[in-house]
Design a protein around this nucleic acid. Structure first.
Length: 277
DNA sequence: CAGATAACCTGCGTGC
DNA sequence: TGCACGCAGGTTATCT
């Protein structure tokens, strides 16, 4: 269920805990996931050192020494957690633990995903840019490439609801359902507005708040709405900052109007009918 | 082509 | 308690 801030928080945790560690073995649980991991997975990564942890959109990229990288997507229900050496191995959950990476310091990195919408793929590094998963992704919302002019160009002539536009990974990579609602609340724009009908000033506000909200969420290690936990088992503190998501029927913190929940593109979308036009 | 919808899969909370 | 139902933070194939 993670969006960009949750994946980035995970990246930062792994950067501190597993970079420099060598994979000494793997254990396979249920599988398959949304895509095949690769053939010969275990033998191919045994003995490889994890050199770097990167991120692109909601994808995590574990850089190994040699030519391979491991691409990870958490889907709706995935998690990648560290288990230390005294974690009882009988607690390996064959139903939802799909892959366990055993590291040379005795810890284990476990990919768990009940709904199996996630992806773990071993690919060669040079193939990364052409990879089906990464190919069509839009700019990183925290990069210079994402700005008001760019967003205006993307919105021009489009009839989709603005919320769908900013959740479209080809337009901007990393915004999901929670942060889309939060961004539009801060920008004062209703989620149902047609993208092509937005005024320049509204586009400017949306483009401005996307990185602001995402950065704030990263600083707070993401959002725990239901049961999301970061890789160290801690809930994300951005939950306390949510202005509209999950607050249907509750009062807007700014004007006390009752927050509404409407379906936009089959997804729950929360907004304040007074603060958002 | 853009846009809308269905599908993928499982768990959990709710209401009867 | 049991059960049917709706809903979930994502992506993508397939329709119109």
């Amino acid at each position: 269920m993670p969006e960009l801030p949750e994946v980035e928080s995970l990246r930062q945790i792994l950067e501190r805990s597993v970079v420099g560690r060598t994979i000494v073995g793997t254990r396979i649980g249920r599988l398959p996931l949304r895509r095949k991991v690769t053939t010969n997975f275990g033998p191919r990564i045994r003995g490889r050192r994890i050199d770097k942890i990167g991120r692109r959109a909601k994808y995590l990229i574990l850089d190994l020494d040699g030519e391979d990288v491991i691409l990870v997507h958490l889907g709706m229900s995935g998690s990648l957690t560290c288990r230390d050496r005294d974690f009882d191995s009988s607690e390996f959950d064959r139903r939802h633990d799909h892959i366990e990476f055993r590291l040379d310091d005795g810890t284990r990195l476990v990919f768990n995903d009940p709904r199996r919408f996630g992806i773990v793929r071993l690919v060669v590094r040079i193939a990364l840019p052409d990879l089906h998963e990464l190919k069509g992704l839009g700019p990183e919302p925290l990069s210079e490439a994402f700005n008001a002019d760019y967003l205006a160009a993307q919105a021009r002539g489009r009839k989709v609801a603005v919320k769908n536009l900013i959740m479209d990974q080809r337009v901007v990579a990393g915004v999901g359902n929670i942060y889309a609602s939060e961004v539009l609340y801060r920008a004062g724009v209703r989620p149902t507005r047609r993208a092509g009908r937005l005024k320049r000033e509204e586009i400017v506000r949306i483009a401005k708040f996307i990185p602001i909200i995402l950065r704030d969420a990263i600083d707070r290690r993401g959002t725990t709405f239901r049961n999301y936990r970061d890789s160290e088992g801690r809930p994300g503190a951005f939950a306390d900052r949510l202005q509209v998501y999950g607050r249907a029927g509750e009062k807007c913190y700014r004007c006390s109007t009752s927050i509404r929940n409407v379906l936009v593109g089959q997804r729950a979308s929360f907004y304040c009918p007074t603060c958002q036009k």
